[in-house]
């Protein structure tokens, strides 16, 4: 039954979207994690999505999503002059992560909506299959 493939494809999307939610949570949690050196400061992380290549060549199947990896944002870090801070460096500066909170919120909403719509597709496919199984009864 080719409908089974809907579960594979939507399942891969669920996996990708949950990973995206995970990185968003990590970014939001660390939005205010300061540090004394630029190297040790947290940088915003984002997953990279791509179509599943194996499925692209096998033309009779739907194409799932895969996560190629997680990249760290190379936007400039914020430097703040706060000599009283316990983590301030010798010049009195602390480094703040380059997490853009508004962008992360938008990412979060997009990920959770995509997750929901994939679940809905799986539900519809399930109904179709159940009805097929009970055909002629």
């Amino acid at each position: 039954m080719s409908l089974f493939n809907v579960f594979d494809v939507s399942g891969s999307a669920l996996h990708a979207q949950s990973l995206r939610l995970n990185t968003t949570a990590s970014n939001m949690a660390n939005a205010n994690t300061v540090s004394s050196s630029i190297e040790k400061t947290y940088r915003a992380r984002h997953p990279v999505f791509a179509p599943m290549l194996g499925d692209l060549f096998e033309k009779t199947k739907g194409v799932g999503v895969q996560v190629l990896g997680i990249v760290e944002s190379n936007a400039p870090l914020k430097q703040e002059y706060s000599p009283g801070h316990p983590l301030a460096n010798e010049n009195g500066f602390i480094s703040l992560p380059n997490v853009n909170v508004a962008e992360e919120m938008a990412n979060m909403i997009s990920a959770s909506r995509s997750y929901q719509s994939n679940i809905e597709l799986m539900n519809s496919a399930k109904q179709m299959m159940l009805r097929t199984i009970s055909l002629g009864q």
Binding site: D55, K61, G62, S114
Partner: peptide, 23 residues
């Protein structure tokens, strides 16, 4: 029926890749 189940698969792949760049 056969065609509709194939089409369901294609559309599911489209929704799954709603956030994939260049898809």
């Amino acid at each position: 029926l056969h065609l509709q189940s194939r089409r369901a698969q294609l559309l599911a792949a489209n929704v799954a890749n709603a956030d994939t760049p260049k898809f």
